[in-house]
Write a protein that binds this DNA or RNA. Sequence first.
DNA 1: TTCTTACAACTGGTTAACCAAATATTAGCG
DNA 2: CGCTAATATTTGGTTAACCAGTTGTAAGAA
Lengths: 236, 236
Amino acid sequence: MKLETPIISDSKKVQNEIIAKIKELINYKNLEPGDKLPSERMLSEKFGVTRGNVREAIQKLEFYGLLKSIPQSGTFVANIGVIAMNGMIDDILRLESPDFKSLVETRILLELKTVKLASLRRTEKDLKLIKEALDAYEEKVLSGQDAVQEDLLFHLAIAKASGNSTMNTFMLTITPQIIIDFEKYHVCDKNQAALGIREHTEIYQAIKAQRPDLAKQKMKDHFNVLYQYCYKSKSA
Amino acid sequence: MKLETPIISDSKKVQNEIIAKIKELINYKNLEPGDKLPSERMLSEKFGVTRGNVREAIQKLEFYGLLKSIPQSGTFVANIGVIAMNGMIDDILRLESPDFKSLVETRILLELKTVKLASLRRTEKDLKLIKEALDAYEEKVLSGQDAVQEDLLFHLAIAKASGNSTMNTFMLTITPQIIIDFEKYHVCDKNQAALGIREHTEIYQAIKAQRPDLAKQKMKDHFNVLYQYCYKSKSA
DNA sequence: TTCTTACAACTGGTTAACCAAATATTAGCG
DNA sequence: CGCTAATATTTGGTTAACCAGTTGTAAGAA
């Protein structure tokens, strides 16, 4: 019998192992801010992995500001205390693919804010783009097709109109995972679609009228249905 | 005279150009969901860039669920309508390094939620870790050293205690940029430090007492100071 | 001894060659 | 002509060689 597809891919697993070993090495050698790490080649040999694996791990730690690679020179420990370093690496290692509940919880938090900001800041062009997304969604639904993507694009259009690039980025980041989970847990079946159109339209109207509190309330109503649907099939 | 360091690196720029060209190509060739893209080698030749550049661009689009690479077979267009595809690619291209205001706005939103969740869900171990972060911060401050890193680690400890992996990840994501901006705009100078200790302590006490609303209020007070400080040196 | 300088070794970054699997093509049989 | 099987080609993924710049070393002059 074939084994289950692993939740975390092997390459991810080996990368985390490398990060853990780098952490050990920093502690063992008492490396302080500004000190140089062994070269990628040495680390790859020491850890028994390819240089590519080591590079990936280093780049990840570099993204979180813990290391700094300088071309033709070396990789250096960032200006951060050893306790802080250990804490942050532990956090990074603990980063797992987010559970559905966390994802929904975060999405609701973000969207209740973005819809409010969009109501305040939206330009006419933003409004036009939201309307287009709404129309595309409606068309797909009325023709009986699956409209999960168009649904989310409506929400992304709102995020864009919020004028907050960070929240916009976060919405884009979680959207792919939401699509995957929706398909996995079979959220958003057809009979919800008609209701979805009405709710989307109400949200759009509130944004158009620049009524942030109303828009937030309509978004809340919209998510109430979703929330219940999610927790129906999955234990909270 | 040497030119300024570019805000967006060249490699990032060329990657965006490739993404834009892939978008054009999908539109020009009317590729539909499931259709195969030209091979990486052909694209690299067609665009006049290296295969590595093409691979990076494809992997980015793959992350956002727009493409799907299958080993020894090809790269395929995801099951998403052409309008949706264009919209999401535009979003991705528009993704810029976030402005300070967006960053602060998002951080406040996230932290007012995580501190509330942490008050409700924190385990004894969480509480211990938060206390340790608080002590480390206090020690650094009282010895007159720079404590930006320890400051943020206290907040990260709260995010971890919130039990929401997505928000925890987001906090980790924005933290490096916050550190950079803090240093750039010289936020958090020494005379604020003493006040910071008191505020941190009050937040910790509220979490310990499991009083979510009080914790949220204390966090709000904490950010009020920060907010004013930010907008003092930078036009809103 | 001390400072300068030429040179060798090492560094992270990049490129091109290589790999196994999937696919397209063609040869051969019925 | 129709179908199968053998083969050649193409694919994304991976590895090893290469590159230019930096750094450590030591030789040589003052």
